[in-house]
Structures are given as structure tokens and as C-alpha cells.
């Protein structure tokens, strides 16, 4: 088995998931925590890191379950339930492990972990990887790239919102309104990256 082209494909998928096909700004996944938690850079950083980790790992786990359990049994329609159970169980497990072995990390990321189970970006990435028929190596690249893209977007948004705190915004536009318009501008900016991957 020759893994060379697969690894380079994984790299391309990773970069495109980060920028041109950003899971948040192009597919609108994980929008609720994005609007709710992006008030401060510090908390966004914690949530972002937790998302990168959980997204990459659950994508891999879900790929393995889908291809080695569900497909042989012909139970593909069952994937929604199985994926969400795997995600919830994984998050719970990570929380327990962190609590036991690394109080420092637990303090940093612990509060965000329960939030992640209902983050649609996690389930969305798993469903996309099934629909697009990625191989295992490509799935790793895709999961990591999507997580990193989400992380970048929420950090940038938190930075902008901290600056906005002292600005005068029309009353009706405060809160979600202005955040959505900023997200639109950010989506435009991220679309500018589409030239990067033209050659491939």
C-alpha cells in the first residue's frame, strides 16, 4: 500500500478545511457556541483547543466504527445515533481522565467539555467525512483542519468583539446582530484564501 499520495491529499484537505472550506464560516456549523462564548479571547482559546482535540479524535473513532461495524452490518442509517453516542461517551471519558490525571488541563478545558457534545461542528465533521468518502488518513487531516479552522475563527471573533466593547452600536444591533455581521465579513475574508489551493 502506497501512503504517499494519501498523505499529500490529507494535507490538501486539511488546509482547505482550515481556510477555504472553514467549517464555521462556510458550513455554519458550531455557530451557537461561536456566538455565545466569543466575548473574551481567553475563554475562546480554551473552547477552541477543546474543539480541535475532540473533533480530530471523534472523526477518527467514527470513521473506524462506520467502516468496520456499520457498513459490514448494513446499518448505515443508524449512524446518527451511533456517532452522537460515541461523541458523548468520548467527551465524558476525556473529562474523567483529565479530572484524574491533569487538574491543570481540567481547570482550563473542563468547563467547555460538556458544551462540546452539543456542538454541531463535531457531528457535522463526522457526517461530512462519511458523505465525501474520505480514507482514514485523509479523515485525520480533515478532522484536524476543521478543528483548527474553528479555533482560528473564534479567536479572531473574540479579538474583534473585545475591541468593540467600547464602541457605540445601535441598540437593536447589539449582541448577536453585530456578531453575525462581523462573521459575514470574516467569511468574505476567508473566501479570499480560495486562490491558495487552485493548483491542486
Amino acid at each position: 500500500m502506497n501512503a504517499g499520495p494519501e498523505i499529500s491529499q490529507a494535507f490538501v484537505v486539511c488546509v482547505s478545511a482550515m481556510f477555504t472550506q472553514n467549517i464555521l464560516l462556510t458550513y455554519f456549523l458550531g455557530l451557537c457556541p461561536f456566538l455565545g462564548v466569543s466575548r473574551e479571547v481567553k475563554t475562546s482559546m480554551g473552547l477552541g483547543l477543546a474543539v480541535i482535540f475532540v473533533l480530530t479524535s471523534t472523526c477518527m473513532l467514527n470513521w473506524l466504527t462506520y467502516h468496520y461495524v456499520l457498513v459490514p452490518l448494513g446499518l448505515e442509517f443508524f449512524r446518527f445515533i451511533l456517532f452522537i453516542i460515541i461523541i458523548a461517551a468520548f467527551v465524558q471519558l476525556v473529562e474523567m481522565v483529565l479530572d484524574r490525571y491533569s487538574p491543570f488541563l481540567y481547570q482550563k478545558l473542563g468547563v467547555f467539555l460538556p458544551l462540546i457534545t452539543v456542538n454541531c461542528a463535531i457531528l457535522g465533521a463526522s457526517l461530512f467525512m462519511v458523505i465525501r468518502d474520505y480514507s482514514f488518513i485523509v479523515t485525520i487531516g480533515y478532522g484536524f483542519g476543521s478543528g483548527l479552522g474553528w479555533f482560528l475563527a473564534i479567536i479572531a471573533m473574540a479579538g474583534i468583539r473585545q475591541k468593540l466593547a467600547n464602541e457605540r452600536i445601535p441598540q437593536g444591533l447589539q449582541g448577536p446582530g453585530i456578531t453575525l455581521i462581523i462573521a459575514g465579513l470574516m467569511a468574505l475574508a476567508f473566501m479570499g484564501f480560495s486562490g491558495v489551493l487552485q493548483g491542486t
Binding site: L25, G172, L173, G177, I181, G184, M191
Partner: peptide, 15 residues
Amino acid sequence: MPPGAFFMLGIVTWV
């Protein structure tokens, strides 16, 4: 395209 959705939702919320 995606940015349009963000703008529209922002404007609708505002209105």
C-alpha cells in the same frame, strides 16, 4: 454564498 447568510441574519435580527 455563505457571507450573504450571515449578513441577512444579522440584518433580520437587527430589524
